[in-house]
Design a protein around this nucleic acid. Sequence first.
DNA 1: CTGAAAGCGCTTACAG
DNA 2: CTGAAAGCGCTTACAG
Lengths: 362, 362
Amino acid sequence: MRKRVTARDVAEAAGVTATTVSYVLNNVPNQTISPETRQRVLQAAKALKYVPNVAARSLRSRQSLCVGVVLKKNLTHPRFNQMLQGVQQTLNANGYNLMLCGAHKKTESGYPDYLHIYLEQRIDGILFLAEENHPPDAAAKQCILENHIPFVAFDCQEQAPGYSTVDLDYEESAFTVAQTMLSRCRKTLFYVRPTLSNAQESKREAGVRRAAAQFPQKQLIVGKMPASYQSTDEADQLLRGFPNASMQNPSLRPAFFKEVETLLLPMMECLEPGDAILSSWATWTRFLRWLRRDVPLITGELANNGEDFSGGDIYARMPNFQAGQCCAQLLLRALAGNAPESRVLSIPCMERDRSLDWLFIP
Amino acid sequence: MRKRVTARDVAEAAGVTATTVSYVLNNVPNQTISPETRQRVLQAAKALKYVPNVAARSLRSRQSLCVGVVLKKNLTHPRFNQMLQGVQQTLNANGYNLMLCGAHKKTESGYPDYLHIYLEQRIDGILFLAEENHPPDAAAKQCILENHIPFVAFDCQEQAPGYSTVDLDYEESAFTVAQTMLSRCRKTLFYVRPTLSNAQESKREAGVRRAAAQFPQKQLIVGKMPASYQSTDEADQLLRGFPNASMQNPSLRPAFFKEVETLLLPMMECLEPGDAILSSWATWTRFLRWLRRDVPLITGELANNGEDFSGGDIYARMPNFQAGQCCAQLLLRALAGNAPESRVLSIPCMERDRSLDWLFIP
DNA sequence: CTGAAAGCGCTTACAG
DNA sequence: CTGAAAGCGCTTACAG
């Protein structure tokens, strides 16, 4: 193994001291270095293939040029890997590295591991992309504020939490999608939401109802997916088809679908050709459409992650990639010492690309 | 901002010295600490919420407890996010953190950034999950060997590269899938591979041909996808439906599909009911089946990532998650000082789960 | 314009 | 059983 090259070695080779090497390589402002010295240092560094030791640098400078990303959910979920892609791109372009963190409790320090890693001084800031509106808990929040940790919380729907936030405009996008569907459907819009009650689902329902209020001559029916169907990775992956081998559980399926059918089919009996089905989650579309395969219906989705082409006729496309970029930008601003900011991103309403419908063979 | 708690503070609180704190907290072997002292230190550390500074620790101990994962391709590709999931799980379970690296050239040191990050001492080892059989280049390889970098290369199909490797058994799985299809089909198996010529595609074709040799009474036809269709994220995502907003390019499609049709349809004219189509990539199945939608055909795929339920009748399921785990394990072994190892993973042959076929509405 | 010195917060022989 | 001391490789006031 080659001996590590240090700033000292570069200094010797250039006939200067380590101080000067540091000044040159870091372009320290307000330091006047003669052009010749600068050249000698740069050449020596190149010749020796000098790479500064980041541990020493962090120790002294108190920054690691690395940020942590907290993901509770599985990376195989398109929502998260699309976001991560946007985050990664933005951070790298700004000289930051990216570390993956879980959100598990650490026993040692009592803090969740993303805070532990921060307190260790391994990362300079935190991007919190958790799941379904769960902000950091009270203890974690206190730690963030006390230590002025650069922190961005995504999709947590909080008021003035003391750190930056990025949220999505669920109400408005639900309104737009529902409005479009109502304007096109015969008479009835059947909306299916999870029983699960959180801020985002409440806002969606509010948006749908606001749209329905504009069409007094039409009818809105709201159904709920049974609880066993929601919010678990397992269930989600069942329809999504993204199972790791270990997650496949075919034996669950029949009971599962039967339950949904028993619950929802009776509510769908009134649907006639030209009516519409709108579901909170894109993964439900196929199943719902299948339940009333006897009539042609318009379909819509409030949360489409671009999984495939067979989606609803109208859908709100989650701006995952852009949300990742936005989160990263706010974190960069926080790292630069700016005050917390909040952003709300809109979720664009799209129409299915019918030019590819032929791919779904009869 | 709270003042940072150091080992010194803990030492004072416990009435010992920082040395002892280090011994206790790290459970240093061959150090005899009296139980009472140990207790006092642990209590003080807990009371003060002491978290050791990882920069100082790395600087001294020369390890960061962090490894880098190199991904060239997009994280939104199921193959990579499934692998990453397996990697992450295994590494975290063993106390390592995970850093995402690109494979870009750095100008400063001249090394690709994953090596730069290693040389900075930011990571202790590297997991190289690149794309399509591209091993690290000669300069990088030399750097890896010279510095004895713990390194695992995935899917690079190299002989004795001097670091650990994990590869997939493309030949065998292609053989198995083709064999199954040949035994079931009427007379002709139409196999479509990329024109792209690399080790993995050669092995696949070899496997298919080996199977065909076992069925002298049947016929194998080999077609090639036009080059514009292959190996680019863009093209792949076109059919996959995983576009970032910026990647959608509907205007490309018509020309694209037309080209494929012109090239392949003539070769498929001989197919009759009961014959079979086998494609190297799962994303092609729909399109190929559509080209001969007039006859019922058996379909098969040599690389299915579990994208959806509408896949081929028979397919080789890429063991991405397990491959990620395997890579992580080999890296852990290398980090522990073991000699490089090589593994070849098999790609299991599966049948489509027909119990979900009803989801694809006529 | 450049260098000597201190120090970031740990760990690790070594001494007793 | 525990501590004094050195040192990992940088950066940063400060001095000249």
